[in-house]
Every structure is written in structure tokens, then in C-alpha cells.
């Protein structure tokens, strides 16, 4: 009886060791420590995800684990996160920054970030017409540029909703 118990314990220890081994192996070949946050919300903190697609001023690009270290600036658009289990989540971001570091950690910090399903199509349409008016009505260069930025953001929002 005692022997059986001993065996049982041994088997459990072995299994645990093996599982730890498996986990550590899995970690070594692809691990991304992904952080995605806005001042008000945190969507991912040091999470392991498969891939992240981000819109930047130098063009949209995808980030896989072990991406070359880089910095980029976010532009209004959709961030798509492909999670470990294969599902994907989409967020709209207004602006912010992306940093990919040597240790394969990725930080996407957005000034505003919201899941796509939270966006209101009606409000976006109204925003576009208002922003268009403002672009046309703007008197100074600065006001015009500001209105232009608003319009671009709204257009990106609408594009995000259409897809």
C-alpha cells in the first residue's frame, strides 16, 4: 500500500517536471510580452499573443514574436490582436506609440483605444459631416489643420466600421 502511494507521488512529480519542461520549451521559441493600454483602460498586460497588426505612419504592419526592435507612431486605425487560441480582437486607436524591444516585449500605448463593437456608426456619420464643415469654414491655417486631423480620424473610424 505504502509502495503504491510512493509510486503515485513519484509519478505526479515526474508529470509536473515534464509539464514544466514542456511549458518552458514552448516559451523559448515564441513568446511575446504584449502590453496594450490607453490612459483609461488596459486591454493586455504582458500577455502572450500570436500576432498584432498595428496602423502606423510608416504604414500598417504586423508584429510577430521576436520581431526586430523598433519604434513607431500610431495613426488612427484598427489594431488587431490575434490571441493564442486563434480568436482575434479589434480595437480602434486614435494616436499613440508602439515600441518593440529586444526582449520581444511589445508596448502599444494609445491615447484612446476602444473595442470596435463599442463604436456608434450614427455618431461617426454625424462627426464626419461636422468635421467636413469645419474644414471648409476654418479661417486660419492652424484651425484648418486641426479640423483636417479630426476629419481623418473620423474617416478612419468609418473605414474601421465598414470592414
Amino acid at each position: 500500500m505504502a509502495g503504491l502511494l510512493k509510486n503515485g507521488i513519484r509519478a505526479a512529480t515526474l508529470a509536473r517536471q515534464c509539464s514544466r519542461l514542456a511549458v518552458s520549451q514552448q516559451r523559448s521559441y515564441s513568446e511575446m510580452s504584449f502590453t496594450f493600454a490607453s490612459p483609461a483602460n488596459v486591454y493586455y498586460t504582458a500577455a502572450n499573443v500570436k500576432q498584432v497588426d498595428v496602423p502606423s505612419f510608416s504604414g500598417s504592419f504586423g508584429i510577430l514574436p521576436n520581431h526586430v526592435p523598433s519604434l513607431a507612431v500610431l495613426k488612427p486605425g484598427v489594431v488587431t490582436v490575434f490571441e493564442e487560441d486563434g480568436s482575434n480582437k479589434k480595437f480602434f486607436v486614435s494616436s499613440g506609440s508602439i515600441s518593440i524591444n529586444e526582449d520581444s516585449s511589445v508596448q502599444v500605448l494609445a491615447e484612446e483605444a476602444h473595442p470596435l463593437e463599442n463604436l456608434d456608426a450614427q455618431a461617426v456619420r454625424e462627426g464626419i459631416s461636422k468635421a467636413t464643415q469645419e474644414v471648409n469654414a476654418a479661417a486660419s491655417e492652424k484651425a484648418k489643420a486641426e479640423a483636417q486631423i479630426a476629419l481623418e480620424c473620423y474617416e478612419a473610424l468609418q473605414k474601421a466600421l465598414e470592414n
Binding site: P39, N41, V42, T45, S99, N101, E102, Q107, L109
Partner: peptide
């Protein structure tokens, strides 16, 4: 309550300078 997301956000902003 608001500090919790801000902390993750701050950690994200610091990460690049630390690395």
C-alpha cells in the same frame, strides 16, 4: 481604481527606456 490601468500604462511607457 483609476491608478490600476494607469500603472500598466506607465509600465508600458517606461519599458522602452529601461530596455
Amino acid at each position: 481604481r483609476e491608478l490600476r490601468p494607469a500603472r500598466s500604462y506607465g509600465a508600458g511607457a517606461k519599458a522602452f527606456f529601461e530596455s
